[in-house]
Design a protein around this nucleic acid. Sequence first.
DNA 1: TCAAATTTGTTCGTATGTATC
DNA 2: GGATACATACGAACAAATTTG
Lengths: 248, 248
Amino acid sequence: MTSARTITRNSGVAIWRQIADQIRSDISSGKLATGARIPPEIELATRFAVNRHTIRSAIAALTKEGVLRAEQGRGTFIANSKKLTYRLGERTRFSQTLSTQVRETRGILLAHRLEEAPSGVAEALAMQSGQVVRIDTLHTADGSPVSCATAWFDAARVPNVAEDYSSSGSITFALKAAGIDDYLRKSTIIAARHAEAEELRHLRLSPGAIVLVATAINVDTMGHPIQYSKTRFAADRMEIAIDNESAG
Amino acid sequence: MTSARTITRNSGVAIWRQIADQIRSDISSGKLATGARIPPEIELATRFAVNRHTIRSAIAALTKEGVLRAEQGRGTFIANSKKLTYRLGERTRFSQTLSTQVRETRGILLAHRLEEAPSGVAEALAMQSGQVVRIDTLHTADGSPVSCATAWFDAARVPNVAEDYSSSGSITFALKAAGIDDYLRKSTIIAARHAEAEELRHLRLSPGAIVLVATAINVDTMGHPIQYSKTRFAADRMEIAIDNESAG
DNA sequence: TCAAATTTGTTCGTATGTATC
DNA sequence: GGATACATACGAACAAATTTG
């Protein structure tokens, strides 16, 4: 347990939630390991200079989230811990980048529809006009939701992408079915924000939780854009790594 | 103004803050442009299904942050807007990547000290043993703080890095002074979390705010690590872009 | 110039949540 | 657990500034 950082009163964020966020952050950043015992409530109360009831509220929230596990007479323990790393590269594939870290990954189709390309999407896909297929997906690692995404494709080029994704849980497979055997990551923009209500539900997060938003464009081997997507990662479970191989 | 997303009651995060966060997010994601007028309080109150006072609390918080500006009888307007983009590449340099987006950037030395390499740092710098120079810096763009960083260097190799940074506000300059004319970004890991108290102060953020954390290793032209750093970007002001040039 | 409509600013009161002791 | 203080959220007004007709 690291030292208690200052808490801010009257900020619109209850003290118990600020403390819960700090403890969760210490756990997911690796300062606290799985199975470790956190200090007793009285000690935490002293350290954060708050009442013990306030600490109990924080622990109760984290227990409900599944981050902590309290045992009467023994102490409070860390239930879960380490972050998964999503390695970004030209040939980034979701299941592949996680394959060494988890036993199993899965992709679930949440929704799909044909729509007029929203502003920004047509430009990103270098389309003159026309319709796009939009798919909303959820990705799990060992059964836990780790990210959800919205992706747009040129409807003329990959009309059955939703169906093919649904049956396989894989973008790579769905594109192969449309005759696109290979694709490359052209650009990625990474931002972070608070999770919205739908993301909270899908990723099983609590209000105030953070998502990393990766906005990406994938191109075929001719350099033509085929996929524009926004993936939201649960920031307490995932981090993104960028390796510059030539500088190794 | 996009549609109101759900707010969650009794979550430990005040409703006025959740609404303020949503409005701020809409602004910085570009859904709302500088100078634009946001809907009147009554309309927002209806849309979010809350009392007008609650909307006023949210607006007051954003006004204090400098994001909004209210004028009696006229309306409430967006004061500030666009996000800065930090382009990550092998030769990433802070001032250079922002030079096309802002008039002026500055680096300020907050603190420095000689210390035994903490766990993780010695490995990252490929040092057998010994001391490291740690510097804590703050970076501003056009006067606004956008990021703060902690960086470690092998004390044997760049003993005066703190002094040289202090006088120039530039890592590139400080390394040149130690005879390192060029360096490359080897790896970057990006995560996101809530800002800690010190970061809130330095970056002038409010509790619950988000920081993007970039953990980086820079190497010299021989591939030997010279700098290990953790940079925290205010997520509502900055995003990170990764371009894969060969896939363009 | 005046009047109406719109929009932000202010002041009551009341109920509930948060935090302390 | 109970008592107390303060923050949060709601509701109903009214006041002040601005825009529109």
